[in-house]
Nucleic acid binder design. Sequence first.
DNA 1: ATGCCATACGTTATATCATAACACAATCCA
DNA 2: TGGATTGTGTTATGATATAACGTATGGCAT
Lengths: 131, 131
Amino acid sequence: MAQEQNLTKNQSLVFEKLSAADGPMSAYDLLDELREQGLKAPLQIYRALEKLQEVDLVHRLESMNSFVACAQPHCHAKTGLVAFAICEKCGTVSEFSDDVVQSRLADWATERNFTPTKTSLEIRGLCQGCG
Amino acid sequence: MAQEQNLTKNQSLVFEKLSAADGPMSAYDLLDELREQGLKAPLQIYRALEKLQEVDLVHRLESMNSFVACAQPHCHAKTGLVAFAICEKCGTVSEFSDDVVQSRLADWATERNFTPTKTSLEIRGLCQGCG
DNA sequence: ATGCCATACGTTATATCATAACACAATCCA
DNA sequence: TGGATTGTGTTATGATATAACGTATGGCAT
């Protein structure tokens, strides 16, 4: 944390909105909800999101072009690999990580001299309540 | 296999083009290259891609909004989970699968009564030659 | 304090990716 | 034979993302 202290106005607005949401939001969702705070252009959102991803406060869900506030900023910055389970019915996103998966992937990369920069792991499906 | 026999004209065109390519292509890349074969609209491409994904001849790379021909249609249809390593410099995509990763994720899902429909696992980074 | 650098901001315009809606054609097979 | 399913073609539109430009702000070494 403490990172949250360093955020600029736009970054804070986006982060607060995303944290308050109960699920993922697209950049344009965020823009719509932040117009009354003075934000007017997509780039303002995308730039804030870019920074927030850099400092691990926000994750991008590649499979649905949207964004979520990180569930536990403190932990995951260390663990590296973050995975998501996304319910296609109710939209709930569960964030988790798995050391075994992580090390298997690290092994794969090491064996092939592949240098990973970012990994995305997303499971689409139906959650307990919706299954 | 044999599946390739059942493809329609548009599906074949898209699959052939994608198979001949040495890397991923976007839907609009495909459209540009298939105009001379008579394809004119994005939907013709997207519909073909949709079918090709259903029969496991093509994969979608979520992190880059593009598509690749499946490296080994016969095997992967069984294995279920397919992972990709994507070089951000040269664009090369390596397809692989890992039973351990797969079973860990299956366990996670089972424990939570989550019913997976599709999983995407993509590692961005630099390949051996580009690292 | 001055000048420089890195970072963020605001704005307009544009690029890129994807689907809705409608009408028509081909095929299967009950 | 006629209904269901799947594929097609077309136009229009929606949704997501970035380029390019200029300005402003804050740190910090001189």
